[in-house]
Nucleic acid binder design. Structure first.
Length: 366
DNA sequence: AACTCGTGGGG
DNA sequence: TCCCCAAGAGT
């Protein structure tokens, strides 16, 4: 790898970061010392996986107020943990973080990078980031920002992740020279604010040294990733209400929205075929919306059905007192129906005779 | 080694 | 509207 020496090439990043660095709630004042609260670094890094800084900040602040130490988090029950993560997405991160806190509370912090990487939810990037930012270990942390910055700086053709091992070897001496915490955060800050997918080279401290800029190829380096087409589906999202209770699915242990409570769903085609009077269905529904996930697009038709009495719910379904609903962790889709139920003036039209529809849903759900 | 896992912001 | 991407990890 005929790359210029990293300590020299990256030297401008240190004074640049000292000037422009954002004041983030998990960021230490003294970047030359070990971080005063490694737990804060761990929380921030789990929250920041595939999630932008601006989104994380309010969650981070609430999280540390609610769970100030690994011990406090280790003792929290799963619904409480998921409630604090509600809306942030990728919910298994919350379970990984709690499991990591259990380990730290019981055995203390690992003493090396391999130990960090064994904590649940910490892969190659996050283990190195916590090692560098919390403990000042010279561990190269390569995230999407770092790969983009270094691919352009060094004019790496193709997917830079293929060169991860070379890049770590190349970067390590620069971490020693400029400080692991400082340089790690400076590279990512540059990628997030200047060397973004659409770069602002005029503001870049590395512009003079950047090989991609000299070649006028920043627009094509790194190449865009390939993405699979999202799967399409259409569902009814069903709020059944009886005797002041609402019917919810208890949290699943795996799959989409695992760990969260969910409204029962019925595949749209299924309900249409089973309802004796399909023409009644739209009259009981609110206008729907499209729920977007990374690999799915879901046409959601919200449905509110009032029953006179509860029925024996199927396995995994629970009748929840309506007053308790706000304490349960829900995903964005299910929060939206919860909000519809609680909003006056949003009541859908009543069907002339919804009994057939209710029987159909009860058959499908219980 | 593809595939899965949420949600929000920006062009 | 659509596509890309975001301080990725686990399977």
């Amino acid at each position: 790898m005929p790359w210029p020496a990293a300590p020299d090439l990256l030297a401008p990043l240190a004074p640049w970061f000292g000037r422009v660095r954002r004041d983030l709630p998990w960021r230490a004042t003294d970047l030359d010392a070990p971080h005063p609260d490694p737990y804060a670094v761990l929380v921030s890094e789990l929250m920041l996986q595939q999630t932008q800084v601006a989104t994380v900040v309010p969650y981070f602040n609430r999280w540390l107020a609610r769970f100030p130490t690994p011990q406090a988090l280790a003792e929290a029950d799963e619904d409480t943990v998921h409630k604090a993560w509600e809306g942030l997405g990728y919910y298994r991160r919350a379970r990984f973080l709690k499991a990591a806190a259990v380990s730290v509370a019981a055995e203390g912090w690992p003493g090396d990078l391999e130990g960090l990487a064994q904590l649940p939810g910490l892969g190659p990037y996050t283990a190195a980031a916590v090692g560098a930012i919390a403990f000042q270990w010279p561990a190269p942390a390569l995230d999407g920002n770092a790969f983009r910055v270094l691919a352009r700086l060094l004019l790496i053709e193709g997917d830079p992740k293929i060169r991860a091992a070379d890049l770590r070897t190349w970067l390590a001496p620069a971490l020693e020279a400029h400080g692991p915490s400082r340089l790690t955060q400076a590279i990512m800050e540059l990628g997030a604010t200047v060397c973004a997918p659409t770069p602002a080279c005029g503001a870049c401290p590395l512009a003079d040294a950047c090989a991609a800029r000299q070649a006028e190829r920043t627009g094509e380096i790194p190449p865009a990733g390939k993405r699979a087409k999202p799967k399409e589906s259409a569902i009814w999202l069903v709020a059944m209400e009886a005797e002041g209770y609402l019917l919810l699915h208890a949290p699943a242990t795996s799959g989409l929205l695992a760990g969260l409570w969910r409204w029962p769903t019925i595949e749209a085609s299924e309900l249409a075929s089973q309802t004796p009077a399909p023409g009644l269905v739209p009259m009981l529904a609110w206008p729907g919306w499209t729920q977007v996930y990374t690999h799915r697009r879901e046409a959601v038709s919200p449905l509110h059905l009032r029953l006179g009495t509860r029925f024996q719910a199927a396995e995994g379904l629970r009748w929840i007192p309506a007053a308790d609903l706000s304490a349960l962790p829900l995903g964005q889709r299910d929060q939206r129906l919860r909000d519809l139920l609680a909003t006056p003036g949003q009541t859908p039209l009543e069907a002339p005779d919804p009994a057939a529809l209710i029987r159909a849903c009860a058959t499908l759900l219980g």
